[in-house]
């Protein structure tokens, strides 16, 4: 135990040195003060490749305290590679308590989902963001997009939605669906499905977004207005699913498609694994739960 502790001492608490954490915290404070505004920060090299959540990890490291309880999800699941390794990383370098239960967590680092369970005051959701600039695909110049944000010139965002309708007959953007925060900044909610957009609106939890490669941090403070962009005659709507979750029978949740065999067999299950397990523990049962038990035996 003592040797383990001395090995740990070679890292500062939560991996980053205190000066770096201060720098990131300053960026976070600025981001909270200007909801939706992308604050540049001096992103550090992390012991993982870009695209694996280096931005989210830095934000989490900067706000993590010894008393915190950490949950990490990837596409809603607690048990995928990315989630497991980031969780293990913070267990090792910060020795914090971890959980898979949304309710118990004080900090939830997420990639591409917002938990189904309603987040409450005191919780912080940290998003991993690959491309923070919502205007990027239409305007490649950073100088120009910054100017557009500064002058609130967001016509271009609707050009993208217009293109969607012209090509597909409806707004076909299903993830990274642009939102306007507090009536001012247009923001990319990271590649979460648009299903989750309404959860950001007036959320009790603090939402922080970290983009490591692009070196940007932005935030949505609690109780902030988050409105998805749309047209008057093509209003914003979320995805709906024909069937409930095959394991827990939940409706109005975001489902993943799971291919079962090579004969076209498939099932739709909750993407939020914690939510699904919790429901099953409470006796909810989907159509394919028995099938799964049979397979296990």
């Amino acid at each position: 135990m003592t040797t383990a502790a001395s090995e740990l001492a070679t890292y500062n608490f939560a991996y980053l040195d205190e000066q770096t954490k201060r720098m990131i915290r300053r960026a976070i404070l600025k981001a909270i003060a200007i909801p939706g505004y992308q604050v540049p920060f001096a992103s550090r090299e992390m012991p993982m490749p870009y695209g694996w959540g280096t931005g989210g990890v830095q934000v989490t490291a900067a706000i993590l305290g010894p008393e915190d309880v950490l949950k990490v999800i990837d596409q809603g699941a607690d048990d995928t590679t990315n989630a497991v390794s980031i969780r293990a990383f913070f267990q090792k370098v910060a020795d914090v308590a971890v959980t898979t239960k949304t309710r118990e967590a004080t900090i939830i680092q997420t990639r591409h989902r917002i938990p189904e369970e309603r987040l409450t005051t005191g919780q912080t959701l940290v998003y991993q963001v690959p491309i923070p600039e919502p205007l990027r695909f239409l305007e490649p110049r950073e100088t120009e997009t910054r100017k557009m944000h500064a002058l609130e010139e967001y016509g271009l965002m609707h050009v993208k939605l217009y293109e969607d309708i012209a090509r597909n007959g409806h707004i076909a953007t299903t993830y990274a669906y642009p939102v306007k925060v507090e009536g001012r900044y247009v923001m990319d909610p990271s590649p979460t499905p648009k299903f989750d957009n309404p959860k950001m609106h007036m959320s009790e939890a603090l939402q922080l977004f970290g983009a490591g490669r692009e070196k940007r941090i932005y935030a949505v403070p609690p109780f902030t207005e988050v409105v998805s962009l749309d047209f008057e005659d093509h209003p914003f709507e979320v995805q709906s699913f024909d069937k409930p979750c095959a394991l827990c029978g939940a409706e109005n949740v975001y489902l993943d498609e799971v291919v079962l065999d090579d004969r076209g067999g498939r099932m739709f299950v909750c993407s939020d694994t914690d939510h699904c397990e919790d429901r099953r523990d409470h006796g909810h049962c989907g159509t394919m739960l028995a099938y799964n038990k049979g397979a296990a035996q």
Partner: peptide
Amino acid sequence: LRMTVSAGANVGERLMAVGERHYGNIR
């Protein structure tokens, strides 16, 4: 021009930039 968006969106961009939010009218 914006070479990667349709002709309709190219013409409509200025309308959307000044706050037009009705797809049918823009088109």
